[in-house]
Design a binder for these strands. Structure first.
Lengths: 357, 357
DNA sequence: GTGAAAGCGCTAACAA
DNA sequence: TTGTTAGCGCTTTCAC
């Protein structure tokens, strides 16, 4: 191995000093610990003179409060949990990023968990979140994990769920209006001349997958296009799943001229499979995804897709949680948010082969 | 909007019960709280009879310990921080996933932060981690953020750094041996007949980017290929960056026949840009990435790339932290780990046009 | 306005 | 082996 460029720094060894605590600060500022506490928390009315002295001491000691002690005594951890389906699908990191940004901006920390739609893993996550005394949990895994969530409900922890309702006091819901985007997609395809439109669905254990499939069906009806049952195939929202789904379509006697996919990752798998077969997208086959992950713009050809704003979703989820968490004792009724979708036309859709020649 | 399939459940309203604590358990099991504590912590020697009673009570109450109280009194939070460069680059979620798995398996929780190579954001993350009393931090952002890290060093928090050394007692290092993979890549290209090999580097503020670029240079020398300075271009490890980098290459009078990219995301950008220009990969141009993210297998054509195991990296990072954190008072010398790379040949490389015709 | 003091839920000495 | 008790660092009454 080569020599490398390392940043080497010689030991700035300092005698290891005990972490300062509220008492250290109080002593240095010559006030009581109560005053320090009040100052830190911006409590009403600490005399200017004192608070200044306190801040000075804090600065000088480079002090910051111990969040465990705070959480213990106040019962407020300022911690939110977020449970996603699969952190490996780019949709979710982008979502987490947005969620974290708002959370941090409001002084909250987040605990992330990837459930992989596995109830056992999920149960474990929930348990760990409970131990850490999260003040709310955003369940963005779109799955059918109600039983596990009961733990949260019993403990009266605020929750926000994507895609399904729970009739509980502290549980809010985010409704995703796929319908608008999916209808636009089908209309777009029909206008291009397609009538053989397949749908590669997500795993049926996910609420989102079911909803998307239903919306595909009603959009087809709305556009007056017949649905061929063998063209609706359950996949699993993964790259490989897209390849497999495409394979099943390949074996059919009559094949569709367009494929709508339940998410972008599936669509990217389809792109790959079509390429392997030698079909050209969009000339021989049109493909549409759903999500509009960052990658969608960079596939070959660029993916036409239905955009679902991660930012809006994250924003809504945080807002729901914050409201529930911060309204002490109020009637705290559950709220409902709506996040919309829209079609983004790029390069993976065109007129069907027969329609052109 | 349509009717949707919602899972609706009628309020299982229970009187909100106070969360059970160690005293509740002790009372129910008719033992002292010390015994409960010992039982929970698997302490040596609690008589079978008692521990059984305790576990029963725990079960019955659905009790679990309050981690804040535990952390407060024991000084151990069982929390590790992990700082990555950019959670939006699929390499990192995959890395986080692996890291979390090992961590959870060992009873640790993780706090994730995405620094986006911004010192201000990083400083904020570090601060928050300090407040939460993390027992160690894995800095996998590959950046030049030493100043910020001083905070951690001063407080004697175990750390593990990717790609650079710090001469401090509790700081371990993970060395990434890009050299092996990069040499193999260059050799592969040369054997195919290429001699005009460009390099789209990462942002120079990242250690990893510098190292990779250096390794490219020495690999070129080792293979006896001349380096054309204008073919080495600093990009930023993003999709768009790859497109931009390609654009710069496009404007040159003599153009390379192969491009080695500092990471996969850049390579995917290049694939896209080449497609837009009408060049065919690999017939007209060969492209190689670095990382081997899940997507690499699904690009068009499948990307030849240099594999860097996220699992190995995560494993090493966790192990380093765990060892440092758990060896109380030991000499605790810093350790060094090595993670290797290897070439994965797929479809984006072939003989150069001139070499074929 | 400010301080003294009582815990939050738990672990770890120390006693018994 | 088991229990009693003193805090961990902080917030929050309640006096002053």
């Amino acid at each position: 191995m080569e020599k490398r460029r390392f940043v080497v720094r010689k030991g700035t060894r300092k005698a290891v000093v005990k972490t300062p605590n509220i008492r250290t600060v109080a002593a240095l500022a010559k006030v009581s610990i109560a005053t320090v506490s009040r100052t830190i928390n911006g409590s009403s009315a600490v005399r200017e003179r004192l608070s200044k002295r306190v801040w000075q001491a804090i600065e000088q000691l480079n002090y910051f409060p111990n969040s465990h002690a705070r959480a213990l005594v106040s019962g407020r951890s300022r911690l939110f949990g977020i449970i996603v389906e699969n952190i490996t699908n780019p949709f979710f990191p982008e979502l987490i990023q947005s969620f974290e940004e708002v959370a941090v901006a409001h002084g909250y920390e987040i605990l992330v968990s990837s459930s992989n739609s596995d109830p056992a893993i999920l149960a474990n996550c929930v348990r760990r979140m409970l131990e850490r005394k999260v003040e709310g949990v955003a369940v963005l895994s779109f799955g059918a994990e109600e039983p596990v969530l009961d733990e949260l409900v019993h403990r009266d922890i605020p929750m926000v769920l994507a895609e399904f309702r729970l009739e509980e006091a502290k549980v809010s819901t985010i409704l995703l209006d796929y319908s608008t985007g999916i209808r636009a997609a089908i209309r777009h395809l029909v206008e291009l001349g397609h009538s053989k439109i397949a749908f590669l669905a997500g795993p049926h254990k996910l609420h989102s997958a079911i909803t998307r499939e239903n919306d595909y069906r009603s959009a087809m009806k709305a556009s007056g296009v017949a649905i061929e049952p063998s063209w609706v195939i359950e996949c699993d929202h993964t790259l490989k799943g897209g390849v497999v789904g495409y394979g099943k379509l390949q074996n059919l006697s009559t094949r569709p001229t367009a494929i709508l996919c339940s998410n972008d990752v599936t669509a990217i798998g389809v792109l790959r499979a079509a390429y392997m077969e030698g079909l050209r997208v969009p000339d021989d086959l049109s493909v549409i995804g759903l999500d509009d992950i960052d990658f969608a713009e960079f596939t070959l050809p660029p993916l036409t897709t239905i955009r679902l704003s991660r930012f809006d979703l994250a924003q809504a989820a945080f807002e729901a949680l914050r409201q529930q968490a911060e309204e002490a004792g109020n009637p705290r009724m559950q709220r409902e948010f709506l996040v919309s979708t829209s079609l983004v036309v790029r390069g993976s859709t065109a007129a069907p082969p027969s329609g052109r020649r």
